[in-house]
Design a binder for these strands. Structure first.
Lengths: 354, 354
DNA sequence: CCGTTTTAGTAAACCGTTTTACAAACCTTG
DNA sequence: CAAGGTTTGTAAAACGGTTTACTAAAACGG
C-alpha cells in the first residue's frame, strides 16, 4: 500500500538510470536496436525501483493516437433477451477482438432517461472518449443513426432493423435461415410445418415469421396461424409445454418443426412424453446461432438438422468493419449478412417414413 | 461526411476568433466571468466553423486528470446467470452512476485464455486505462484480489465469496435473507419449510442453503434433504415443474416455500394446477432482489410476503466505495452487507388456517 | 595512426491542453 | 488629468511523453 502522491515520470527514471528521456522512451517502446545490454538493465531497474507507470494521456497526446476505445451500446433493460445467449456472446467476442487490437470496450447501457439525454451523452463520448460505436440491434433508437451520420462517427449496427435502410449493419439473415429450413422440409414432402420462436415481437422474431410466410407462399402451402407461434419471455416460463403438447396432440398436427436452439428442450420434452419418434413421426430443424448451444446438440443421440449462422462471426465482421471505418473514414460501407447454411442431420426425414 | 485529415486545435480556434489560446480554454471550461459577450460569440462561431473537438489526452495530461474510467469485470461465459436479472441490473445501475460522476465504464469479459493472461491484461489496464475495478462475484479468480492488493489498485467485489475473507466486498446478505424467511415462517408455526433456489452451486446458492440450515437448526427443525433443492440452468428448463409437483403431492408436503423471484412462476403454476390455496394450504415467501421483478409481484392478487434486498443499492454502495478508494487510497475499506428486510404480505399464514 | 563507419545515446522540438502571473485599455473619481 | 479599479485578455510555462536530427566515442580498415 504505498502512497504515491507525486507521480514518477519518465524524467525521474531517466535521471535515476543516468540516461536521457529519449533512451527510456526507446526502451519502453521496445526499440532496443541501439541500446547496450547494460543500459537496458539499468533502466529496467530504475523503473521497478520507482514503480514507474507511463502516462497514457501523455503518450497518446504525443503519439497522436486516439483513445483506442469503442463504445458498445446495449439496452438498459435486457429482460427480453434472457432467453438467448446473445449478449454474453457479444460481450466476450467483442472483448476478445478488441483486446487483440489493443482497443478497449466501453459499455453504454441506455438508461431510462430521455432519448435526448442519451444522444447527448453518446455524442459527448464520441467527441472525446470513443472512436466509434457498436450498436446492438435491440437497442436501436433510429435517431442514433442520424446523429452518428451527421457527425461522421463510425458506427456499425449488429443486426438489421426492418423498415430502416439507410444505415450500416452486420446481421444474421434470420429470414433466409427460416426459408432454408422450410425449403429443406418441403423438399422432404412436408406440408405441415410449424415455426416456434422466442423473443416475441422482437425484430428477429418478425423477420423469422416473414421468412416463414414467404417460403410457404413460394411453395404454395397455406399459412396456418396455429402452426406459427412466438413465445414471450413469460410464455416460455408459463405455458410453452402446454402449447407444444396441444399442437402435437392435434389430429392434423405438424409433421415438422422449425425451432431455435433455446426452445429445443421444450419440444424434446413433449415429444418424448408423447412417445413420438424423430424423424419418423416428427422432423425437427434447429435454428442455431451460437457455437456452444448449451450442449443441446443432439436429440436422442441424433444430430440435429440445423440452419447455422454463428453470432460470433457477425460480431467479428462488425468489429472489423468498425475498425475499417475508424481507420479510414472515407471507405464505403456495405451492410453485410452473415451466410446461413443448412446442415442436414438426422432429425429430418420424409413424413411418416421409417 | 467531411474528411478532416488535420486535427483542428485550440490554436486554430484562437487564431480564427482573434483571441489567445487561454481565452478559448476559458470559454471551453465555462469560465465566462471575465469575458465579453461578444468574445464568447466569436469563439463559439469559430468552434463551429472549424468543427473543433478538444483533445481529451491533452486535456487530461494538462489537468493531471486520471482516465476517469472504471473497469467492470464480468465472466466470459454468462450462461449460468441467465435465470436472474443480475447482470442487466449491474450494467445499467453502474452505468448510470458512472455517468453522473463523469466516469466511463470499461467492460472486461474474462476470456477463455489462461488466468495468467487475464491478470496480465487487467494489470495493464489498471496501469493506464482504468482507475479501479468492480468485480462481479461470479467472476472471481482469487488471484485477482492478491494482485490488485499488491499493486494497490482500487477494487470492490460485488458479492461475498465464501472461504475468502481478506478482500473488500459489498454484497447482498443472502444468508440472512433466508434466515429471516425461515424465522417468519416458524413464527407462524410452520415446520415443513422448503427452499428452492436457482443457480445451482453458485456462491449465492451455497450461502442461501447455509442460512436455511442454520435457521432450521436454531429452531430445532430437522433438515430434510428433499425440501431443499437447487436448480441448475438446465433443470429449470427441463424438470422444475416435475420436481415441484412431486413435492407438492407428497403426503407430508411442505407447508411453506421460500423461493427466489425468478422461480415463483413455476411454483405458482403447480400450485394452481393442484388447486392449492395460498396461504391457507401453502405459504410462500419470495426472495426478491430486483426492483422490477418481471412484474410477477402478486399471487392471485395477493401481495407476496417477501424478503427484500435490492441489488441496485448494492451496486450503488459498491460504486461509491470504489470512488472513495480511488479518490483517497488511504481510506480504510469496510466490507458491507446490504440490509435485508422482511415485508409481510398476504401469501403467508399459519399452516392449515383459513 | 588517421579517416570512416558504426554504435549508443542525447538535446530539443513538439503534441494540445490548462493555468498562473501579468498587463493593456477603459472607466472612475477626487 | 493622474491615480487607481475594472474589465478583458494574454504570454509562457507546465503536463509527460515521442521523435527527429545530431554527435561523441569506439571500432574498423588500410
Amino acid at each position: 500500500m504505498k502512497k504515491k502522491n507525486v507521480k514518477t515520470t519518465i524524467l525521474d527514471v531517466a535521471k535515476r538510470a543516468g540516461v536521457s528521456k529519449a533512451t527510456v522512451s526507446n526502451y519502453l517502446n521496445g526499440r532496443y536496436e541501439k541500446m547496450a545490454e547494460e543500459t537496458k538493465e539499468t533502466i529496467q531497474k530504475a523503473i521497478e525501483e520507482l514503480d514507474y507507470i507511463p502516462s497514457l494521456s501523455a503518450r497518446r497526446l504525443s503519439a497522436k493516437e486516439s483513445s483506442k476505445t469503442i463504445g458498445l451500446i446495449i439496452p438498459g433493460n435486457m429482460a427480453h433477451v434472457f432467453d438467448t445467449m446473445y449478449y454474453p456472446i457479444v460481450f466476450s467476442t467483442v472483448g476478445e477482438l478488441a483486446e487483440k487490437e489493443k482497443y478497449s470496450v466501453l459499455i453504454y447501457a441506455q438508461n431510462s432517461r430521455s432519448e435526448e439525454k442519451n444522444i447527448e451523452y453518446l455524442m459527448g463520448l464520441a467527441k472525446s472518449m470513443v472512436d466509434g460505436f457498436l450498436i446492438t440491434n435491440m437497442t436501436v433508437e433510429t435517431r442514433f443513426f442520424k446523429e452518428f451520420e451527421r457527425n461522421s462517427i463510425p458506427h456499425v449496427c449488429l443486426g438489421k432493423i426492418e423498415d430502416i435502410d439507410d444505415y450500416q449493419f452486420v446481421a444474421t439473415d434470420h429470414e433466409k435461415a427460416v426459408e432454408l429450413a422450410v425449403d429443406h422440409l418441403v423438399g422432404l414432402e412436408h406440408k405441415q410445418i410449424a415455426l416456434l420462436t422466442e423473443n416475441k415481437s422482437s425484430v428477429v422474431d418478425d423477420v423469422r415469421r416473414k421468412g416463414y410466410r414467404k417460403a410457404l407462399k413460394r411453395h404454395g402451402i397455406e399459412f396456418i396461424d396455429e402452426y406459427c407461434h412466438s413465445f414471450s419471455h413469460e410464455d416460455i416460463r408459463k405455458n410453452i409445454q402446454v402449447y407444444i403438447s396441444r399442437l402435437l396432440e392435434k389430429v392434423d398436427r405438424p409433421t415438422a418443426f422449425i425451432v431455435p436452439a433455446s426452445l429445443l428442450i421444450y419440444l424434446k420434452q413433449e415429444t418424448e412424453r408423447l412417445h413420438l419418434n424423430v424423424p419418423e413421426d416428427l422432423s425437427i430443424v434447429c435454428l442455431e446461432y451460437y457455437k456452444n448451444n448449451f450442449g443441446y446438440v443432439t436429440f436422442q443421440n441424433k444430430k440435429y438438422t440445423r440452419v447455422e449462422s454463428v453470432v460470433d462471426n457477425v460480431c467479428k465482421v462488425a468489429f472489423d468493419k468498425l475498425m475499417e471505418q475508424i481507420h479510414d473514414p472515407s471507405v464505403e460501407f456495405h451492410s453485410y449478412f452473415e451466410p446461413v447454411k443448412l446442415l442436414v442431420g438426422e432429425t429430418t426425414g420424409k413424413p411418416g417414413e421409417k
